[in-house]
Simulated assay, not measured.
Amino acid sequence: MSEGPVVVGTDGSAAAARAVRWAAQEAAFRHQPLHIVCAVDLDLAERLSAETTRRVREAARSLLGEAAAAASGRAPGLAVSTEIGREPAADSLLRAAASEAPQAPGGTAAEATIVVGSRGLGGFSALLLGSVGLTVAGQARCPVVVVRGTERPSSGVVVAGVRDEEDLEAVRFAGEAARRRKASLRLLSTWTYLQYVGSMAPMADVVRVAVEAEAAASTRMLGAVREEFPDLKVTEEVARVPSPAGELVAESLRADLVVVGARRRAHHTGRALGRVTHALLQHAHCPVAVVPRG
Rank of each mutant, 00 (worst) to 15 (best):
A201H: 13
P242D: 12
M221A: 14
S199K: 06
P230C: 02
P230N: 02
P230R: 03
A245E: 05
L194A: 14
A201L: 07
A210T: 13
P244S: 10
G246N: 02
E214T: 10
L232M: 06
P242Q: 10
L248R: 04
V249F: 01
V234H: 06
E227S: 14
A210M: 11
K233T: 11
E237T: 11
L248A: 03
V207W: 13
R208Y: 11
P244M: 09
Q195I: 06
R254I: 00
A224N: 12
V238A: 09
A204N: 11
V225S: 05
M203V: 12
V258Q: 05
S199C: 00
A204D: 12
L194D: 13
V211S: 09
A239M: 07
G223D: 13
R240P: 10
G246K: 04
D205E: 15
A210S: 14
V206A: 14
L257G: 09
A213P: 01
L257V: 08
G223I: 00
G246W: 04
P230L: 02
P244R: 08
P202D: 09
Q195P: 12
R240L: 12
E214H: 13
A216E: 10
L257M: 07
E227W: 03
L248F: 01
R226A: 05
V259E: 07
P202T: 05
R226T: 09
R208N: 09
Q195K: 14
T235D: 12
A245S: 13
D256C: 01
S243L: 07
A224S: 15
V209S: 15
E247N: 02
S199W: 08
L232F: 08
D256F: 02
E251F: 05
G246P: 02
A201Q: 08
E228V: 01
L253D: 09
V259W: 09
Y196E: 14
E228A: 15
R226P: 07
L194Y: 13
E237M: 06
A250I: 00
E212K: 13
V238P: 06
P244A: 12
R220G: 05
V259P: 08
L232K: 07
M203Y: 13
A204L: 02
A245C: 03
V197P: 08
